[in-house]
């Protein structure tokens, strides 16, 4: 039983780390109506840039430099990719972000190299015991960071003036423009926030797995969480992250041996499919009512 709880807690903490990536998707969708498939590659790019800057700057300056880079990137993406695609079907924007993902991946690896790099930010990965349960210190720190980020973002979207403008933009580009919300600035801001989340996720995942190509594949783990929680719900991303993290860990440990193992790769997708069959817009997603 202790073992089962340990597995579940380990899964929950990893789940929070997944949510961190899923959060980037939700933010951009919520604030600009774009499903950003490049989030994983932005995470990779942020981590690569951070490692690159670390060779010349101390840690805090390197993080700041990486953040500046991500903001510059957000402005560039808005100007080059998104602006010409205003008022085009959402799927066209989605496919554009797939292209963007490849582009960023190529740029990042072209500049900083394809070899795996270590990233050490000074949080130890030694597990410690609470009442007989082994818990990874690193996962705990990641969970705390993600939790803080979520609270800040929920406040931003619900209470602040800019956040509300962003929500209006995601509802309807043209309607938001007509009530005087500067669309270009709103998009740049939302991509900059997604860049910030990508940087945080890049730091956490990068110091855990090493900074390399496979970091961009974390996005593939975040996608089922995203659709499970609903693509426009911040709490949904967190709760679905916890559900997926715990259930995939439990499934792998207790179900895996019977079917040959490795079910972690697809279990979240299966779970998401089953839930979506009953709730087509995820657990917390806003239901879209279609009219002819």
């Amino acid at each position: 039983m202790i073992f089962a709880i340990e597995v579940a807690i380990g899964g929950l903490l990893v789940g929070v780390m997944y949510s961190l990536v899923a959060l980037g998707f939700v933010l951009i969708y919520k604030s600009s109506g774009v499903f950003n498939f490049a989030q994983g590659d932005m995470t990779l790019l942020a981590a690569l840039a951070l490692v690159g800057f670390l060779t010349i700057f101390p840690l805090w300056l390197a993080i700041l430099a990486a953040l500046v880079l991500m903001i510059a990137l957000a402005i560039a993406i808005e100007a080059i990719v998104l602006r010409p695609l205003v008022a085009r079907p959402p799927l066209a924007l989605f496919m554009a972000t797939i292209g963007l993902g490849f582009f960023l991946q190529g740029i990042g690896q072209g500049i900083w190299g394809t070899d795996p790099k270590g990233l050490d930010i000074g949080i130890s990965d030694i597990p410690f015991k609470i009442k007989g349960l082994l818990i990874s210190q690193f996962d705990l720190a990641g969970g705390a960071l993600a939790g803080g980020l979520v609270f800040a973002l929920v406040w931003f979207f619900q209470k602040s003036r800019t956040g509300r403008a962003l929500r209006a933009v995601s509802d309807d580009h043209e309607a938001a423009l007509s009530v005087g919300i500067p669309l270009r600035r709103a998009w740049a801001i939302s991509w900059a926030i997604a860049g910030l989340v990508a940087l945080v996720a890049g730091i956490m995942w990068g110091s855990r797995l090493g900074v390399q190509f496979s970091l961009s594949l974390i996005a593939l783990k975040a996608l089922p969480i995203l659709i499970l929680g609903g693509i426009d719900s911040i709490p949904g991303a967190i709760i679905a992250g916890l559900v997926v993290g715990a259930s995939e860990n439990l499934a792998e440990v207790f179900l895996g041996p019977y079917v040959g193992g490795g079910i972690q790769t697809f279990f979240p997708y299966l779970l998401a499919l089953v839930v979506l069959w009953f709730k087509p817009y995820g657990m917390f997603g806003r239901e879209i009512i279609e009219r002819v």
Partner: peptide
Amino acid sequence: RIKGFYLAVSTLAAQFIIQWVLTH
């Protein structure tokens, strides 16, 4: 039942489930 982005992501399920079945 599922549309749009939700469907796009759930087609990824085919990729992972089939890969797993074919190898296992």
